[in-house]
Write a protein that binds this DNA or RNA. Structure first.
Lengths: 127, 127
DNA sequence: CTAGGTGTACTATGTTCTATAATACACTTA
DNA sequence: TAAGTGTATTATAGAACATAGTACACCTAG
């Protein structure tokens, strides 16, 4: 049994969906800093994905400094509050711009967007 | 000269980047309802992309009901405020969820996100 | 020391998407 | 009629994705 689950949908690469599921589990407290992260082969079995795809997930999470590898032992969850060197402008701003454009295209009020963010923000809470 | 411009960057399909640029031009008023949209061949020349790629852009915009085709004459810009049948939950919520997760991962305050949205919202203004 | 579990690397195959190229056709307008 | 529309087709090339199988270096438990 894994500390996170994935509902695969088409259109998005499986490894990206797993990475996202892991991030959600981290910010919601289902995966805590210091805990052992599932091994490549375990993820492969549990999620019914290819070992190479599972390995791709680990590689991505390591690159984002969300996991630390201890050779021979396994991978472990980092403290995500100090885990990144990515910039606000490079990561968040493009996403926000896209959100704003789509919202305006759908003729949705700004307040509605802001409320939706506050709702989701409080929903995925760290325990 | 087109009513919109694109700064192509790698990692995202060209046709998607053009579609996004068109949407931005629409909500900012650079492309208005009723106006003639550039022809496939004109887009191809101006943006230096393949005619098939330009055609793909038109097809996507038609599917989203942002353009209307008048056979033999060309394509024309729709009123995007009444142009969609997509649902809030299907389109916006996944984007918002992703934004929230990334923000929390980067340890960014909710206020900072909300302010950034308000800024961009007012920046891409309809004239 | 040995067996088994780690992450990791490599080759290979098949599918899908992307982008290009070159034609061709039905349609409408000037 | 000539030229400009969107659209469809076939073809090629490259990249990304997912699978499969194998192998290696590392560490730990027995």
């Amino acid at each position: 049994m894994l500390a996170f689950s994935v509902e695969f949908k088409s259109g998005v690469p499986m490894y990206e969906q797993v990475v996202f599921a892991v991030k959600k589990a981290m910010i919601s407290g289902q995966l805590r800093a210091g805990e052992k992260f599932p091994s490549v082969r375990e993820m492969s079995k549990e999620l019914k994905i290819n070992p190479n795809t599972a390995q791709k997930v680990v590689a991505h999470l390591v690159r984002e400094k969300l996991l630390t590898i201890e050779p021979g032992k396994g991978s472990f969850v980092n403290d995500f509050t100090r885990a990144t060197d990515e910039k606000f402008d490079e990561v968040l701003v493009p996403q926000i711009e896209q959100l704003v454009v789509e919202a305006k295209r759908l003729s949705i009020d700004q307040d509605e967007i802001l409320k939706a963010i506050q709702n989701l923000w409080n929903k995925e809470q760290g325990e």
